[in-house]
Amino acid sequence: MMMQRTRTRSMAVLRMAPMLALALALTALQAQAAPESPGMSPLADQDLRLARIGYRIAVQNADRCPFPDRLTGLLLHDRAAYDERDRTLIAARFGLGNGFGVRDVIEGSAADRAGIRRGDEIVALNGSEMASFAVGLIGRTASYDRIDAFETLLSRTLQQGPATLELRRDGVPRTLQFPADLGCGGRWVVIPANAFNAWSDGHYVAVTSRLMTDIADDAELAFVVAHEMSHNILRHQEQLHGRSALLAQLGLGSARVKDTEIEADTLAVGLLARAGYDLGAPERFLVQAARKRPFDVPITHPGLKRRIGIVTAEIARLQLHPSTATVAPSNAAFGSEHARTVEPPAVTTPIALETID
């Protein structure tokens, strides 16, 4: 259990990557004395793209978790997320004070429907001022700890019902009621790395920046995300008891690891169907992944042909029994009021976890 908490903690820390990239971009722009106002960094754009896809899948499959997450659709930053030397620059660029800045908002999400916009600053939650919240976590070096603490507080608050947020937008105060969407499958994070890879740890789904760049089709990327979310939903980390891919490659427990990959591929098809994604995408992605990683040995994962067969068979099964996974239109609105309460696709094989590595 301690190992699992440590791994989850390390994933949360990596959520700082878009903010660090943004600070570097702004610093470079300032050094060049460029007149134009910069937008978000490429890594921050990838972060938003991944969050959009993950949010859509999670909301449309909320009933698959006995205790669904409370999702907001907010991507936040605060001054503690930047090194001390960058805070003045960041504050000037984004109007960021001592609260929590809205770095991005997922379209159609709970936050979007409530009227929260990029550039807003959350200054109070249910009457509690954020300027004094967790100030002990603000150090000289960049840290995600304060944002993590706020997100935990916000999630717990939303479990009790809609929260009252006080915002500052362009210097003007605003107050609004803010409900949450229910979701299942974990959170999402982009990892700056050149590897073509993705993985999950029971709570987070991590996708490398290289894979995000190489997979331009959102439906194909959604299959990757759904596969890793399936590992989280099916609690494969707990079942494997920390068994590593390296041990599996040495033949120690490889059969069970491979089983989890089969299970994740199978369930991922149902997750995609409910979210309204193109079900031709899994095969396209698998073919592309095989080209990107031609030297992978199918010890911990089924081979390409078998995996294509698995997803094809599940798609055919869903077509014969569509009531097991109601398909949402591709432009379906998000929101708990739109979430389907339907039976998840039956899985006839003992399911398994696949990270792409």
Rank of each mutant, 00 (worst) to 15 (best):
Q4H: 07
Q4K: 13
A12E: 14
L14V: 04
R15F: 05
L22M: 13
L26V: 12
L29A: 15
Q32W: 03
P35D: 11
E36C: 11
D47W: 03
D47P: 03
A51Q: 13
D63W: 08
C65W: 10
L76R: 04
H77S: 09
Y82M: 07
L89F: 11
A91S: 15
A91F: 10
V102Y: 08
D112Y: 00
R113Y: 04
R118V: 09
G119I: 02
D120S: 07
E121R: 14
I122R: 10
A124C: 13
G136D: 14
G139A: 08
D148R: 13
G161D: 14
P162S: 11
R169Q: 11
D170T: 10
V172N: 13
C184S: 06
R187A: 08
W188L: 05
V189W: 01
F196G: 03
T213E: 11
I215P: 02
D217C: 05
L221N: 02
S230G: 11
S230C: 05
H231A: 02
N232G: 09
R235F: 12
R235H: 13
L267T: 01
A268Q: 01
V269S: 01
V269Y: 01
V269W: 00
L272N: 00
P282V: 00
L286N: 02
Q288S: 07
R293Q: 07
T300Q: 01
P302K: 02
P302F: 00
P302A: 08
K305E: 11
V327L: 12
A328G: 04
F334K: 00
E337F: 12
E343K: 10
P344L: 08
A352I: 07
T355P: 05
D357R: 04
